[in-house]
Design a protein around this nucleic acid. Structure first.
Length: 537
DNA sequence: CTGGGGAGGGGGCCC
DNA sequence: CGGGCCCCCTCCCCA
């Protein structure tokens, strides 16, 4: 009996040893397979990234080519010796919005509410959502630009100076992007700097600032769940959190900007939080856009901007003006400035933006053509994601250019950027510094710069930056005309239409031509009359 | 030239 | 105080 017990004990010991050995073997196999699997995944991810980059760059190239075509058209349409900035959405419903404004946006893939780093980005060029920024600068301005400014047109890509190259830059390694001193390696950041420099911009820049550095730093909040099941229909997020409800701008901004924000706290966002960005540079020798992601992002999702091509430069062939629209601005000269927009994207929609940092930088860099900073900054797709306006990015410079000559906008904006900062209007537009009394207002306003149109019509492809505009637009489909003329049977969908119509009955013609005393019932008539008969704008 | 349709931007008010 | 909404003014386009 005792032997039997001993025997069983020995058997049990042997079994235990064998079991342990088997477990160890299994663990080893699992570890090995896991390692191999991880390696395969990593390789697949790399391949995917490479393919995505290739796709993006091809799309950028296509966009650029089309933009240049648009620029040529604008050259023909440009008016010399005039300064005019247009920001209009035109023609979508009529189907002629195709590239009229050169507005291209990267569209988030359908069915995704958040941008992921590894999501493909497509270029939406045919949506017709065209926000045009046209700058026609007087020849005197060009002359003042100095010898570095050459009049040229947009042939672009054959010219190495106009070629685009996007290359990877290590975190913080962008030459013109001051490294974030507190950026943590454990929180990888990607930088996108798509800059495009134009000769005319060069001129403008020289006239305003010799050296600017732009950085856009966005504090990133922890990834929240994307609670928007249908972002298309939802109102964008409103005001930022109270603590960060003001945009803190700092850096070597234009005098106006500095003054505007001198007492705004000057809190320098150090960008500790992870972010997603790209750094792109132009390398004429490497024209196929080689956008590489600089860091592998963690598993979080990023709400990416649609990298809408936002600025477009076109030089008047006659050298009398530069038309800057939405896509490209080119630079020619010995030492053209280079845009380097360092944007740290990846805000969390569910929590909004804390604040943004800006500084501007222009570095001298020959043979560099970059996209407008607004390019790089407009990453969010207003169409398909209905992002909160807090996702909008842009660049001060462009609006410095825009606002400096935008009389029309100055009228409607009550003095423009310089009128903004006050206790009552302490919410500043990050693009133009215009002040607003409410963060919601400034976010709404910033869609002017970003082109974001979160409100889409369910019955057509129209999209709007304001909810009220969508509501008003939907009367087109419903046929609702709530505004009735009391003196006839006319009905109108808009109150302004009724008001304008009633001048038919009253005979009121409040707009008179100063040259010929002719009177008109609408200001636009007067303007057209002046253009045709008095050669005034 | 006139009138209407429709959209963009912004201010104000109410909850 | 923020969000939503309404309204106004303005502009462009077209018939």
């Amino acid at each position: 009996m005792a032997n039997c017990i001993v025997f069983h004990t020995q058997i049990a010991s042997i079994m235990e040893v064998l079991a342990n050995a088997a477990v160890a073997e299994i663990c080893k196999l699992v570890d090995d397979d896991y390692a191999v699997f991880r390696l395969e995944i990593t390789q697949s991810q790399k391949e995917n990234r490479a393919l995505r980059r290739k796709l993006q760059l091809q799309e950028l190239k296509v966009s650029r080519e089309r933009a240049e075509g648009t620029m040529r058209e604008r050259v023909l349409a440009s008016r010399p010796r005039s300064v005019k900035i247009l920001d209009r959405y035109r023609g979508m419903a009529r189907g002629d919005g195709h590239l009229t404004g050169g507005h291209r946006s990267f569209v988030k893939p359908a069915g995704h509410n958040t941008w992921r780093d590894d999501q493909p980005i497509t270029v939406d060029e045919g949506s017709g959502t065209s926000t045009q920024h046209v700058i026609m600068i007087e020849s005197a301005d060009i002359e003042a630009a100095g010898p570095g400014f050459k009049q040229e047109r947009s042939e672009g890509e054959e010219d190495p100076r106009h070629s685009i190259d996007i290359q990877t830059v290590a975190t913080g390694g962008a030459p013109a992007a001051p490294e974030d001193p507190t950026a943590s390696p454990a929180q990888p950041r990607t930088r996108r700097s798509i800059t495009e420099v134009s000769g005319m911009l060069n001129a403008v820049l020289k006239s305003e600032t010799d050296t600017k550095t732009l950085t856009v730093t966005q504090r990133l909040l922890p990834t929240g769940s994307d609670h928007r099941s249908d972002p298309e229909r939802l109102e964008p997020l409103g005001c930022p959190p109270a603590l960060g409800s003001e945009y803190l701008l700092y850096g070597n901004l234009s005098p106006r900007t500095i003054q505007s924000h001198r007492d705004s706290g000057d809190v320098l966002e150090t960008g500790n939080n992870p972010s997603c960005s790209y750094t792109t540079e132009m390398d004429p020798d490497n024209m196929p856009l080689g956008l590489e992601r600089q860091t592998d992002l963690p598993t979080r999702d990023w709400n990416r901007y649609s990298s809408s091509v936002y600025s477009e430069g076109c030089l008047d062939k006659k050298g009398e003006g530069l038309v800057v629209g939405e896509v490209t601005v080119k630079v020619e000269g010995d030492a053209p400035p280079t845009w380097n927009a360092d944007s740290h994207l990846g805000d969390e929609l569910s929590q909004g933006r804390d604040f943004l940092d800006y500084s501007e930088s222009l570095e001298t860099n020959t043979n560099v053509v970059t996209h407008s900073p607004l390019h790089a900054l407009r990453h969010h797709d207003p169409v398909s994601t209905s992002m909160g306006p807090s996702d909008s990015h842009g660049h001060v410079f462009f609006d410095q250019v825009l606002n400096s000559n935008n009389r029309a906008r100055a009228q409607t904006q009550g003095g423009g950027a310089t009128s903004g900062y006050s206790k009552e209007k302490r919410f500043l537009c990050m693009f133009c510094n215009k002040g607003f009394s409410c963060s919601q207002k400034v976010e709404r306003h910033q869609r002017v710069h970003t082109g974001e149109k979160p409100f889409s019509c369910t019955q057509c492809d129209m999209r709007f930056a304001q909810a009220g505009h969508l509501k008003r637009h939907q009367r087109v489909h419903t046929g609702e005309k709530p505004y009735n003329c009391t003196q006839c049977d006319m009905r109108f969908a808009q109150a302004g239409d009724l008001k304008r119509h009633q001048r038919v009955h009253t005979g009121e013609k409040p707009y008179s031509c100063p040259q010929c005393e002719k009177r008109f019932s609408e200001r636009s008539y007067l303007r057209i009359h002046q253009q045709k008969n008095h050669s005034t704008l």
